[in-house]
Amino acid sequence: MASASGRQFRAILRKDIVMELRTKEMLMSMGLYALLTMVVYFVALSQAGSEFDPRTIAAGLLWLAFIFTSLLGLNRSLVHEKDQGCLEALLLSPVDRPVIFFAKVVGNLTFLLIVEALTIPVFAFLFLQGHALESGAFSLVPLVMVAGSIGISGIGTLLATMSVNTSGKDFVLAMLFIPLVYPLLLGAVTATNAAIVGGPDAMMVFWQGMAWVAGYDVVMLLASYGLYEFIVGA
């Protein structure tokens, strides 16, 4: 049974990746959206003056971009399942519901990480040049990125499964998603900020933030895993 589940898991994941590589729907829309966010950031900071050090708010800006691009992507990821009733066909096959859930989470996580990994250097290139990263902890940022994205795609996959069946999909997803990921966001911004800005307590703050993110990931993934079966069958 375990190997059958493994086979199904790989099949769903492969299918999602093949479809994404073919249509590039999620990656393109998320990537361009992230780029557009950078323009908005530039406008927002344009009057800040040369005294202002963008590093102090870089963590917040990065996660703002991540959260809104992920909203966009999560919405897309479930729409094609719904398109021609494919989800029904999936549910009709002898597959355990958690397999569908984890395959979807891993798929979404992959796409999220790709877009985020592209966003960080672009962001650094546009906003952090000339501000020496003397703290040297910038290399820890990808760690927060991965930990945060696990939580985002976990809870996001569950919520997108719901919102795809509602009127006003995008808005409903944002409304459910943002308050629910608030703890994750706060922990992730705290840790990212500690990594970018540095300071005497930076490492302690960083790991404290990371601990929060990891704890949130575990709790919310378990909760989503438990609830998914009821949601997907409804």
Binding site: I155, L158, M162, N165, T166, L176, P179, L180, Y182, P183, L186, G187, T190, Q208, G209, W212, G215, Y216, V219, M220, A223, S224, L227, F230, I231, A234
Partner: peptide
């Protein structure tokens, strides 16, 4: 959906409460 969401929200509220200690 409403039931699932209210359970998630109820789990989320205490986490929000404690994390805000940051």
């Amino acid at each position: 959906y409403a039931a699932a969401f209210s359970i998630l929200a109820f789990i989320d509220a205490p986490i929000s409460f404690f994390i805000t200690r940051l």
